[in-house]
């Protein structure tokens, strides 16, 4: 996996610090070309992996990438699904089952009909889940998707409910159907690692907040440090700047000092910020690889 993954919160009006800033960003990025321009900047800085929500607008980015294979030959998408708000709003409008039906494929091809219909009748979540995954993955058809993530609201809901079997179902489908690695995003890293281990998912890719001030690291800072030292998993650190609460250099230096971190996901809206983060990581990652080597 690349060390540095590019995130997409900034493109879709997600900002954990300020709603004004979030709105400014959604205005700035309302033309798809302005997102593509930033992705181009990231690509030109050597960043090849884009961790992106399965937001409807992502379809346009996918179309662009498919139309320009020469420009983006080794570009990878790491889809994170589902985009939860579209489901949450649909549940308010149509209820739980109504919402589910809305997002299942409308066209009655045999496979979907069999999996969906049978699954509904048998209350077999496996068929329904795989159908939902397929409908979310449709936009990435023909593109490179080496890792497919289950998004944190869903992961943490399933984790809380004790519905661990769903992690295994997701994992198996992503591997067999898309030949991709499953990834899990969570706000509750220590608890999730236990759950994944229970259903036999070894050395999983798990993306969680990992930052110097412990922002949204549920289970506690110490438990995260211990997990990074002692558990076998492929850690991706997100929210390393804690929404801007930690200065960039200090934030990256701290993360790079933690053992066992395979990648950092970050969002940026300007070429200079992208370059700055990349050069900090290039400079400071050495300590991490050095300590990794000592550990192994």
């Amino acid at each position: 996996m690349d060390r540095l993954l590019f995130g997409d919160n900034q493109f879709f009006g997600v900002n954990h610090m300020s709603e004004d800033k979030a709105r400014d960003q959604s205005i700035r990025f309302q033309e798809i070309q302005s997102i593509i321009d930033v992705l181009d900047d990231a690509y030109d800085e050597g960043i090849r992996s884009f961790m992106c929500t399965t937001h409807d607008r992502m379809t346009l980015i996918c179309d662009h990438m498919r139309a320009h294979p020469d420009r983006y030959g080794d570009f990878s998408f790491m889809p994170s699904m589902p985009y939860a708000h579209k489901y949450a709003n649909a549940v308010t409008e149509e209820g739980m089952l109504g919402a589910l039906k809305r997002f299942l494929p409308a066209e009655g091809f045999l496979n979907a009909a069999m999996r969906g219909g049978m699954s509904f009748a048998k209350k077999d979540i496996e068929g329904i889940t795989t159908l939902l995954i397929d409908s979310e993955m449709k936009m990435f058809s023909g593109l490179n998707t080496p890792v497919i993530f289950l998004q944190n609201v869903v992961v943490d809901l399933l984790l809380g409910l004790g519905f661990k079997e769903a992690f295994r179902i997701f994992s198996v489908h992503v591997k067999t159907r898309y030949n991709a690695e499953p990834g899990f995003i969570t706000m509750n890293l220590p608890a999730l690692l236990d759950a994944l281990e229970e259903v036999g998912l070894t050395n999983p890719i798990v993306c969680s907040n990992i930052n110097k001030i412990g922002f949204r690291m549920c289970g506690g800072f110490d438990a995260y440090e211990r997990a990074l030292r002692e558990r076998k998993f492929r850690a991706i650190a997100m929210s390393v700047f804690a929404s801007g609460a930690i200065p960039a250099r200090e934030a990256i230096a701290w993360v790079c000092g933690q053992p066992n971190i395979e990648a950092i996901v970050f969002g940026a809206s300007s070429k200079s910020n992208i370059r700055n983060t990349r050069s900090l990581v290039d400079e400071l990652w050495y300590n991490n690889s050095h300590s990794q080597a000592l550990l192994s």
């Binding site: 943490d156 949204r216 506690g220």
Partner: peptide, 10 residues
């Protein structure tokens, strides 16, 4: 980030 107390599960 400064006003929020940590919780055991998020």
């Amino acid at each position: 980030t400064e006003l929020t107390e940590p919780v055991w599960f998020y």
